[in-house]
Each structure stands twice: as structure tokens, then as C-alpha cells.
Design a protein around this nucleic acid. Structure first.
Length: 259
DNA sequence: CTCGACTCCTGTTAGC
DNA sequence: TGCTAACAGGAGTCGA
């Protein structure tokens, strides 16, 4: 599913629309417009605006224009299509089938081309001028000191804290499971319980996991991923993996080497 | 304020 | 073969 790595891929794929002027808006789905944004408002304010930049904070993609900022969230199954081409063909837990009915939002540009969000399960959405201050620092670039303060400031389970987008933006279920598995830390531990050595290891491993999986091509390319099934075995030591629900998400972890 | 429980969305798949 | 129920996870809301 789209986590920070997939959204970064989307951002880069969207760069060619910078400088183009929006000429049309396809917004057929009320549900897909979030906050105070409505399809009517999108159709009213976006045409005529020139795209000036494409940014990303965590899993939020932002299209800057000379008018409002357009925020795009891809949820679990949202794909981006730019000028008819998709930077990611298939998403984990989604389908690569094409169906125009799944085009929840689309921009057309004056000099040709388009940008489309295709989202079968409608878990994504678009919002004008989203509140960017509601997101924590991006997990791909956060340095040690703020990371340490974020993690140790809570008694919540470590995994839940790492997935709290208001604290640390970008990590989803797969990246967190892979990070904790690599770091040898149990997902259910209180975030506050990490000592300095563990905290430094967690930060280093998280940054490295984001980097390595980015090079491999996405959040689903982790070493743990093939074993994230019922009865799966730990690729490190062969133990049968635990399957728990932590932070409201299915969690696979190895009680033999994650403490 | 924090944090867990609950809810929403719907295509796919396991199982009867 | 055809159906149902479970499952996936990002994000918002609500209440203790």
C-alpha cells in the first residue's frame, strides 16, 4: 500500500506537471473531497491555476499552485496516473485492473496531459489547503534528536507511536514491521521504555530501512514481507512469527529475536 | 492532553 | 458453482 516510499515515487512522477495550467477538474465523488472541500469548490477554484511545485510530507502529496494548495492522500489502494502512465503498476493489497469508475479525481491541463487518482477502495481523498502542521516530521529525513523525543514521549506501544502521523509522518504498517524486525525491538513495548542504545539503533535502522526499501522499489520489498502470513517463519532465525493486532493493525513479529 | 476502540471504504480470497 | 465472511490498512471520530 502507499506509504512514504510510494508517495515519493508518485511525487517524482508528477513533477512533469509543474508549470502547467489546470484547465479542467474531474471530481465525481463527494466522499473523496475531504474537510471543507467539495467537488464543486474544486471545479470552481482550480481551473486557471498554474502548478508551481509538487511536495510530499509523509504520505501526503501536495500540489502547489499560484492559487490554493491541493493535498492528495492515496489511502491504501490509491494509484497515480500522469499523462496516461502509472509510475507503480500494482500495489500490495490492491488490484492493477483498470476501471474508469475508480478514477476518483482528475486534473486536465491546458497544454495537454492529465493527472489522475485511481482508487478502487476510496480510502484516499483530496483537500484544498490541508493543514500541514498536523503532520510530524518526515520519517525519511528526521534526525536523531527529534526522533528520540517523539518516541520517548509516549507510553503507547512502540509500533503505534511510529505510525502516529501527527508525531512522525510517513511510516505505515509494512515499513514499521520491517523496521522493528530489523532492529530487534518488540512492537508492543512501551515507546518510553527504550534506552539510549536501543533508541539510536531504532533511528539508524529506520532510516536505513526507508533507504534500502526505497532503492528496492517500495514498502512491500522488505525481507520480512514474504513471511507476513499466518504461520510464517522469521527469515532471521526460523521461529514461527507472532501475529498480533497492535495499534489497530495486523502485526507480524519474531518473539525470539525482537525484545 | 493522550490513547485505544471503533468506523468507514470495497476488491479479493478462503472456505463451505 | 455460487455464495458469504473475513481480510487488508490509512485516517478520522469519539470517549475514558
Amino acid at each position: 500500500m502507499p506509504e512514504l516510499l510510494e508517495i515519493e515515487t508518485y511525487r517524482q512522477a508528477a513533477l512533469p506537471v509543474v508549470g502547467r495550467v489546470i484547465s479542467g477538474v474531474h471530481a465525481p465523488d463527494d466522499w473523496y473531497a475531504k474537510g471543507d472541500t467539495t467537488p464543486a469548490l474544486l471545479r470552481e477554484v482550480l481551473p486557471g491555476c498554474a502548478v508551481t511545485a509538487v511536495r510530499r510530507i509523509g504520505k501526503l502529496m501536495l500540489l502547489d499552485t499560484d492559487g490554493p494548495v491541493l493535498g492528495m492522500r492515496y489511502g491504501m489502494t490509491g494509484r497515480l496516473i500522469v499523462d496516461g502512465g502509472a509510475p507503480i503498476d500494482a500495489l500490495e493489497y490492491s488490484t492493477s485492473r483498470e476501471d474508469p469508475a475508480w478514477d476518483r479525481f482528475s486534473l486536465r491541463f491546458a497544454d495537454g496531459g492529465s493527472l489522475t487518482m485511481r482508487d478502487p477502495r476510496r480510502l484516499g481523498g483530496v483537500e484544498l489547503d490541508p493543514d500541514e502542521s498536523r503532520l510530524g516530521p518526515d520519517a525519511a529525513t528526521v534526525t536523531y534528536a527529534p526522533f528520540r523525543d517523539i518516541v520517548r514521549g509516549s507510553t503507547a506501544p512502540l509500533k503505534a507511536r511510529l505510525m502516529d502521523q501527527a508525531r512522525l509522518a510517513g511510516l505505515g504498517n509494512l515499513l514499521v514491521d520491517e523496521t522493528l524486525w530489523r532492529a530487534g525491538l518488540a512492537p508492543g513495548r512501551s515507546a518510553r521504555s527504550l534506552d539510549d542504545v536501543e533508541m539510536k539503533r531504532l533511528h539508524r535502522v529506520m532510516r536505513r530501512t526507508v533507504s534500502v526499501l526505497g532503492e528496492r522499489g517500495g514498502s512491500h520489498t522488505g525481507d520480512l514481507q514474504p513471511s507476513r502470513v499466518r504461520g510464517g517463519h522469521c527469515p532471521k532465525d526460523g521461529s514461527v512469527l507472532e501475529r498480533d493486532e497492535i495499534g489497530g493493525r495486523t502485526t507480524y513479529w519474531c518473539s525470539h529475536h525482537q525484545h
